[in-house]
Amino acid sequence: MRGAKLYIPFLLIACILAVTACSHIFSTEASLPAWHPEALGEGRVDCSECHEDQVRGVMKATATFKHSTEFIKQHRFYAARDGLLCSICHASSFCNDCHANQTEMKPPIKLGNRPDRELIHRGDYLTLHMIDGKIDPVSCYRCHGRANNEKCIRCHK
């Protein structure tokens, strides 16, 4: 823990120095807004309904971020690269409905009034995980391998 305490001020100073030193190589393009300027309807959005061409800052076509079933299945790739764009519409707590170091309840209980959302562990998942875990343990590991496994350890000691 002492290493961590030393590390934090070191990094803070390093970041400030780096920002100052590198200021002349920063892009001069205006940053993305912190919020979407207009309220969006419920349900899956399609940015290309209103926007054309590329999304400023991330340099990808707006159609890339259409929230199709395929996009939602593969959203980890986009989140690991373009999280800044996600944060225009989604607060961090939206991600924490499923992804957290410690969750209180499985997402379909917390959001029992939102069956339209793609939430994991619906129905009797306690039984089903015996099968899914054998078929694809990696899908378990992504969330429960190093965190959020305080309930797993009751049986898997």
Binding site: V19, F26, S27, G57, A80, L84, S92, C95, A100
Partner: peptide, 23 residues
């Protein structure tokens, strides 16, 4: 305290992060 999700990292940390688009 925040989550960092950048490339190989998907972590919850107590710390600091900085990002910027360069030229």
């Amino acid at each position: 305290r925040f989550f960092i999700n950048e490339g190989v990292a998907a972590e919850q940390i107590d710390g600091i992060s900085a990002r910027a688009n360069l030229k």
